Simulated assay, not measured.
Amino acid sequence: MTLIGLDVLVLGGGVAGLATARALALRGARVRLLEQAGEIAEVGAGLQVSPNAGRVLKALGLGPDFAEVSDESRGVRMREAARGREVAFVPYAGRGRFANVHRADLIAVLERGAREAGVEITLGCRAAEVQPGGHVITEAGAVLDAGLVVGADGLHSVARAALLGPQAPEFTHQVAWRALVEAEATLPPEAQLFLAPGRHLVAYPLRGGRLVNIVACEEQAEWAEEGWQVPGDVEAFRAAFAGFGGPVPGWLARVKTVRRWGLFRHGVAARWHRERLVIVGDAAHPTLPYLAQGAAMGLEDAWVLAASLAEADGLEAGLAAFQAAREARCRRIVDAATANARNYHLPRGPKRWAAHLALGLASRFAPGVLPGRFDWLWGEDVTAG
């Protein structure tokens, strides 16, 4: 079907929403985007962008802009947390460009790209209800109509609720902390992963090495709030990871503010579309942050949705083709991220010792084995068709 002149309403101004808005607008759709915040901005946070996501940015015409704000990463150095001893190194060489980027910088690139493509962005407008047939009711009571509504409104998606009804998420008994600190010395262009029983910490440089992005996860019995904007207690953060060695104590000492969020499992949606409504990104397939693929899946969704609609004979056929093209891959990614959560937090004992020994041997004698386990993920190019 032709997208020229199709009225599209995108809910959400995050990575998935902005990318989807540009992808559809580039194919001729008239796109409006609603963002509940008063500005499209992000608090301090980093993202690891793998080649499968980078290929979408390039296909959207944003490759050079993304390259300017991101730093190439050469791999992941896995360390035993207590002493900082290296366990294994996972090299990225030969597998495309892996990049670290400040989330705010990526959002800025995507926002400019959406506006340049003609997307109309309305800030401070929250969708309170989505109704079948392309109707959206805002919190202010306005009724907006569109030929297609795209729910890119994240974990608490009103679009997903319209498709599937209310759903109670399941707490994973894991809590994540996020902080940014200034770098005292130049860090190598790689991620460092510190592993401990029941917890782990990931750190990597941003903005030319001037900043260190820290994401640390620990197991916890209870959690009352969901979301990653919850202010955290700096001293509690330091205490939770006080036993970590290597450069970690220096990073923790320089933390001034920290955010934390409980990790919940919503499950991949059983249905992604109905009656001029479709969901993308975290609204469709929320994932744990153990494979750095949340934003990547949103970018892939954006491209595949636009391509599926353009190639299909009618709107509903295009939406069905979109889910068919994406569902199995997204489920596999979500499952792999969940498996990583278990592997990162192995308890002390023979199983943990054996796992670390195997990682070390593979890293030393067959360095292509460890990154090769994820070639199915990083090597995908959804834009190739």
Rank of each mutant, 00 (worst) to 15 (best):
A127M: 05
G94W: 11
L193F: 06
Q293C: 12
R199I: 01
W177V: 01
V76Y: 08
A302G: 10
E184A: 15
E380V: 14
G44D: 05
P249F: 10
K58I: 10
E300I: 12
D375E: 15
F264W: 15
A355D: 02
G12W: 12
L299D: 03
R55S: 10
Q131S: 14
A183C: 09
L3P: 06
P371C: 11
V119W: 01
A358F: 04
G44I: 09
A236R: 13
Y204T: 08
L206V: 05
F264M: 08
A337W: 01
C217A: 13
F374M: 14
T383G: 13
A108E: 13
V90E: 05
R331W: 06
T186I: 09
V280N: 06
R276A: 13
Q167S: 13
R332V: 05
E35T: 01
V109C: 05
L180W: 06
R274Y: 03
D381M: 12
A81D: 08
R55Q: 12
R276L: 06
G298H: 14
R160K: 11
V109H: 04
D153W: 08
V234A: 07
L309M: 11
G17I: 12
P289S: 06
R352I: 08
F241W: 05
A354K: 00
G141A: 03
D105M: 06
A162P: 03
T338Q: 13
E72G: 12
E86F: 03
Q167T: 11
T287Y: 10
G243M: 06
A81L: 04
A242M: 04
V230S: 03
G198V: 04
A108Q: 02
S73C: 10
V150I: 14
G368N: 14
G141P: 05
G118A: 09
E225I: 02
M78R: 07
R27H: 06
R329L: 01
D7Y: 03
A146F: 02
A295P: 13
L33E: 02
V258P: 02
A127S: 04
A37E: 11
E39D: 14
G154S: 06
W303E: 04
V149L: 01
S50G: 10
Q323I: 04
R55F: 10
F365C: 09
R97D: 14
P286S: 12
G17R: 13
L361P: 08
G113F: 09
V76N: 10
K351E: 13
R27L: 11
H356E: 15
L252V: 06
G208F: 08
A127D: 04
G281R: 12
E129T: 08
L206A: 07
A146L: 09
V87A: 12
S70Q: 02
V49I: 15
F237A: 05
G133T: 00
L299V: 05
A41W: 13
A269M: 10
R207C: 12
P350N: 01
G63S: 02
L34Q: 03
A310Y: 00
